[in-house]
Lab assay of single mutants.
Amino acid sequence: TIEDAIKKLLKLAQKGQPYTFGDFTVTSEEEAKKLAKWLKKQL
């Protein structure tokens, strides 16, 4: 689910690992949080 993807994304971001989700490449926890907010709006 999208919720699971968001959780995984935040965990990876906390470890400092870049994470690619579709067109987004997230390289920081701050970016992960922005992406998570955006994804929730898409639901």
Rank of each mutant, 00 (worst) to 15 (best):
G22K: 02
K34A: 09
K40N: 07
T20P: 14
L12K: 04
Q42P: 01
Y19P: 12
K11T: 09
D4Y: 04
D23N: 07
Q17E: 14
Y19S: 09
L35R: 00
L10M: 10
W38E: 03
Q17M: 15
D23M: 11
I2S: 01
K37M: 06
T20R: 03
Q42R: 07
K8F: 10
K8D: 04
G16D: 13
D4K: 10
K8L: 13
K33S: 07
F21L: 03
E31H: 07
K37R: 08
V26T: 03
T25G: 06
F21Y: 07
W38K: 03
S28E: 03
Q14V: 10
L39T: 00
K40Y: 14
K8Y: 09
F21T: 04
S28D: 04
L12T: 04
I2T: 02
K41W: 12
P18D: 13
A32H: 03
K37G: 06
L10W: 11
D4G: 09
W38G: 01
F24Y: 08
E30P: 03
K40V: 12
Y19H: 10
E3W: 14
L39F: 03
L9A: 01
Q14A: 14
L35E: 00
D4E: 11
T20H: 08
E3I: 14
K7S: 05
L10F: 06
K15N: 10
T25V: 10
L12R: 08
K37I: 12
T25Q: 04
L9E: 00
K8Q: 08
L39S: 00
L43Y: 07
S28L: 12
L9S: 01
L9P: 00
D23E: 11
E3P: 07
K34C: 15
I6W: 07
E29M: 13
A32S: 04
D23A: 10
K8G: 04
F24R: 00
Q42I: 12
K40Q: 14
L9I: 06
G16A: 05
K7P: 00
S28A: 04
G22M: 13
E3D: 07
L12S: 09
L39Y: 01
A13L: 12
K11Y: 12
L43V: 08
F21R: 00
A5Q: 07
G22P: 05
L9F: 10
K11N: 10
Q14D: 07
L12W: 14
T1R: 10
K8M: 13
L10K: 02
F21C: 15
K33T: 07
K40S: 13
E3T: 05
K7R: 09
K11G: 10
K15R: 09
T27E: 05
T25E: 05
E30Y: 15
K33H: 10
W38Q: 03
K40H: 14
Q14M: 14
F24V: 04
L10A: 03
A36R: 07
Q42C: 15
E29P: 11
I6C: 04
T25I: 14
A36Y: 13
Q14E: 11
A13V: 13
T20K: 04
L43M: 11
K11D: 13
L10S: 02
P18H: 11
F21Q: 02
I2F: 09
K33G: 03
G22V: 11
K33I: 14
E29A: 08
P18Q: 09
V26Y: 02
P18I: 12
K37H: 10
K33V: 13
K41C: 10
W38P: 00
D4R: 12
A5R: 06
K33R: 12
I6D: 00
K7Q: 07
Q17W: 15
Y19A: 13
W38I: 04
W38A: 02
D23F: 14
K41P: 01
F21H: 02
L9V: 03
K33A: 06
A5D: 02
D23R: 02
E30L: 09
Q42T: 08
Q14I: 13
A36D: 03
F24I: 10
K7C: 10
A5I: 15
K37T: 09
D23K: 05
G22D: 08
A13I: 13
A13K: 03
K37L: 10
A5K: 08
K41E: 11
T1Y: 10
I6E: 00
L43A: 06
E30S: 11
K15W: 14
Q14H: 05
Q42E: 04
A13C: 13
A36Q: 04
K8N: 09
A36N: 02
A32G: 03
L9Y: 03
S28Y: 06
T1D: 08
G16V: 11
A36V: 14
E31P: 02
A32Q: 02
L39M: 03
K7H: 03
K41A: 11
K15M: 13
L39I: 05
A36H: 06
F21E: 06
Q17H: 11
K7Y: 04
K37W: 05
L10P: 00
E3Y: 14
P18E: 11
I6H: 00
L9G: 00
K15E: 10
D4Q: 09
L12G: 03
Q42W: 10
K40T: 11
D4V: 04
A32L: 09
F24K: 00
L9H: 01
Y19Q: 11
D4A: 12
S28C: 11
A36G: 02
K8H: 11
T27Q: 03
I2P: 01
K33W: 10
S28H: 01
K37N: 10
Q17K: 07
T25N: 06
L39H: 00
K41Y: 12
Y19T: 10
E31F: 13
W38M: 04
T27G: 04
Y19W: 11
G22F: 14
T27H: 03
Q17G: 14
K11R: 08
G22Y: 13
K40A: 14
L35C: 10
E29D: 06
L10Q: 02
E30N: 07
D23C: 15
F21W: 13
A5Y: 15
W38Y: 05
Q14F: 15
G16Q: 04
F24N: 01
T25M: 08
W38S: 03
G22A: 06
K37F: 07
E3Q: 13
Q17L: 15
T27I: 12
Q17P: 15
E3L: 13
